[in-house]
Nucleic acid binder design. Sequence first.
DNA 1: ATAAAATAGAACGGAACCGAAATAAAACCG
DNA 2: CGGTTTTATTTCGGTTCCGTTCTATTTTAT
Lengths: 116, 116
Amino acid sequence: MAINLDESQSLQLWHSAAMAQVLDNVPDLTLRQTAIILTIYLQRPPHTVRGLAATLNVTKPVITRALDTMGMMKLVTRKRDPSDRRNVIIQRTVDGSLYLEKLAEIISTSAGELRL
Amino acid sequence: MAINLDESQSLQLWHSAAMAQVLDNVPDLTLRQTAIILTIYLQRPPHTVRGLAATLNVTKPVITRALDTMGMMKLVTRKRDPSDRRNVIIQRTVDGSLYLEKLAEIISTSAGELRL
DNA sequence: ATAAAATAGAACGGAACCGAAATAAAACCG
DNA sequence: CGGTTTTATTTCGGTTCCGTTCTATTTTAT
């Protein structure tokens, strides 16, 4: 079963989900940070700074800074790759999983409220 | 027909849409700004600073600053309410409509790419 | 007319982000 | 070994955003 959203429904969904996040005072990530954390949690590991930078087509400092911020929020952690100590492996956390679970619930609920 | 998205699909949709926006170098609005512009374009006018602040449960300076930014981007315009000159009426623009049309297309496309 | 209330914006200090360039550490290669 | 490449981070100057507080303008009420 394919999901088909027309443009009006798409905007309603985005609006509802954005409103819910603003009202919930959810710690708000930038669009880039959102793309990064979702890539980390949805795509197969391992994830490195270089890999994420390539995937998002941004410079590495952008990734480093986003990881700093999300690291302080406990949404991700970093670890040196033992086999090549230049690399940093980005890992998931319990808090990160909870954050995304909550986000998923907001989106899912917003979708359920869509009216034609 | 009701739209039902499970949590995995919700995150995939959000990921895909966030990625598309990052890759397109779309001018990235904060979550609050996104909620504001969508409220302006999806809900019935008139929109005032006070009304938007109440709707989003934020202070008025937050709205003023968001309108400053989005005004410079030509996504919205402001006009004094002639009948009560304390009020500012926020209005849509052609550029704002185009911006949202593009956003809608990104989300719609992302939804279409969802697989189970 | 004068005082009070309401609306929007400005000012301020602090925090986060950006792009670009410079730095540090590790691995590779001749 | 010594030099080069690769990886990640730090630094720099500039911009934007935030919350709080203060100000200016307009309307309403006494």
